[in-house]
Design a protein around this nucleic acid. Structure first.
Lengths: 212, 212
DNA sequence: AGTTCACTCGAACGGACGTTCGAACGGGTC
DNA sequence: GACCCGTTCGAACGTCCGTTCGAGTGAACT
C-alpha cells in the first residue's frame, strides 16, 4: 500500500521538517497509541496545520513506517559501533544490551512505539520494517551464539534470544525515568548479568517497588 | 466511568451468554487490537446482533474490563493451586512459570489482550484491573524473594521479577502454536532455567529460527 | 386471554476520523 | 511586473464507529 520512497524532490529543509513531524508523531503515538492518535493531535503537537502534514507524508501509516524504520536502523548502527574492539563474548553481549537500553533512554517515545506497534503496519511497509527488525534480532542472536562454545548441544540460542528481547522490550512497561533509582547503564549491566548467569547466582545492587 | 457491577438481575443464562460474548470479544481484540476492533465485528463473531450486545454489557470498554479481570483472577487462582505442596523455592518458581505459560496456551486470546492492552482502560476500571495485576505480580515477586536466602544484599528482586514478566509477557509476540517445536511445558522449564541459572550455565534442548 | 418481562433486533443518530481540495502566501528567476 | 513553485492552510467530504431507540418476539404467570 505504501510507496516506499516518496517521489517528491528532497531539500534539506524538507527532510528537516519531516523529521520534526516524525518526532511529534512519535510523541503522540507513544502517549495514546497509534490507533487512538489522531492526525489533528499530531498536527497540534508539531505546530503544523492538519493539511500541512500531507505535504511531507502521504498518510498516517507512513508516519509510523518511517518512525519504525529509522529506529531499527539506529539501533543496528549503534550496536555495530558499540561492539568495535570488544572480543570477549560476554562483554560483547553486555555491550549490546547497554546499546539497546541507552537507545531507550534517549528515544523513549520512538522505542515504545516500535515495541508496541510491531504488528500495526501491513503489506509492503510491514515487510520492510520486519526485515530491519530481523537484521537487528539476528545480530543479537549471533552474539548469543558466540556465548556458549559448547556444553552439550547447540541448544536454544534462538529461544534464549527471544526471551532476552522480552526482557528488553517489556521494560518500557515498568521503567519510569522520573522515579528510577538505577541509572540506565546499571540497569543494562543487571539485565546482562541476569541473562548470562541467572538470578540465583548473579548479584544485583538496587531495589524498587512502586510500579509493576 | 464504568459501573463496576451491573445492577441488572443475573440469571445463569445471562452469565453464560455474557461469557460467550467476552470470549468472542477477546478473539476479535486479539486479532486486530482493541481500538481497531469494532462492536460490529464482535457482534458477528458472537452471532448476536449489534444492539443485542448492549443487553449484556454497557460498553465496549466494559468488554475489555471483564476480560482482563477474569484473566488475572484465573492466573492468580491457578498460581495458588499450582504451588500447593511445593517447598523448594526453585520448584515453586518453576511451577509459577509453568502456570503462566499453560494459561497462555489455553487462553491465548485473552492473555494476549491482557498483555497488549494493559494501559487502554482508564479511571475506576483501570484501577480495579491494576489491583489484580499487582496481586499477581506480588505473588510472583514473593517467590523470587524466597530464592536467594542471602548472598550479599537483598538485591533487585523487584527488577528481576519485572524482567521475568518481560520474558513471560513478550512471548506472545514470537510464539506460534502451529509451528512450535517445543511443548509449552518444555518452554516453561527452559524459561525457568534461564531465569534461575542464566544462559551460559543452563542447558536448552531445542532451536527455532523462523519468527522473531 | 391477557399481562409481564427477559431478550433480540433493524435502523438510525451524532460525532470523530483520515484525507482532499482549492486558494493563498512568498521568495527566486526572467 | 509576471511567472513559477514549494509551502501552508481553512474548510470541507465521505466513511466508520459506539451507542440508542422503539418495536417485536415468545415463554411464564395470573
Amino acid at each position: 500500500m505504501l510507496p516506499l520512497q516518496t517521489a517528491r524532490k528532497r531539500t534539506p529543509a524538507f527532510d528537516g521538517k519531516r523529521l520534526h513531524l516524525l518526532d511529534a508523531a512519535a510523541r503522540v503515538f507513544c502517549a495514546v497509541g497509534y490507533d487512538k492518535a489522531s492526525m489533528r493531535r499530531v498536527s497540534a503537537e508539531a505546530r503544523v496545520s492538519l493539511a500541512g502534514i500531507y505535504h511531507y507524508v502521504a498518510s498516517k501509516e507512513e508516519l509510523l513506517y518511517w518512525i519504525q524504520l529509522h529506529t531499527f536502523d539506529s539501533l543496528l548502527r549503534g550496536l555495530e559501533s558499540s561492539l568495535e574492539g570488544l572480543a570477549d563474548p560476554r562483554q560483547r553481549l553486555a555491550a549490546a544490551i547497554r546499546n539497546h537500553v541507552r537507545h531507550f533512554g534517549e528515544n523513549m517515545h520512538k522505542l515504545k512505539v516500535c515495541a508496541r506497534e510491531l504488528e500495526t503496519l501491513e503489506g509492503e511497509a510491514y515487510e520492510a520494517v520486519r526485515e530491519r527488525r530481523r537484521s537487528y534480532f539476528e545480530a543479537v542472536h549471533a552474539l548469543v551464539k558466540e556465548l556458549q562454545p559448547r556444553r552439550g548441544a547447540p541448544l536454544g540460542s534462538w529461544l534464549a534470544t527471544a526471551n532476552l528481547f522480552g526482557m528488553l522490550n517489556w521494560f518500557y512497561q515498568w521503567y519510569d525515568p522520573e522515579r528510577a533509582r538505577v541509572s540506565l547503564d546499571d540497569l543494562a549491566a543487571q539485565q546482562a548479568a541476569l541473562f548470562l548467569d541467572g538470578y540465583t547466582a548473579s548479584s544485583f545492587s538496587a531495589d524498587r517497588r512502586d510500579t509493576e
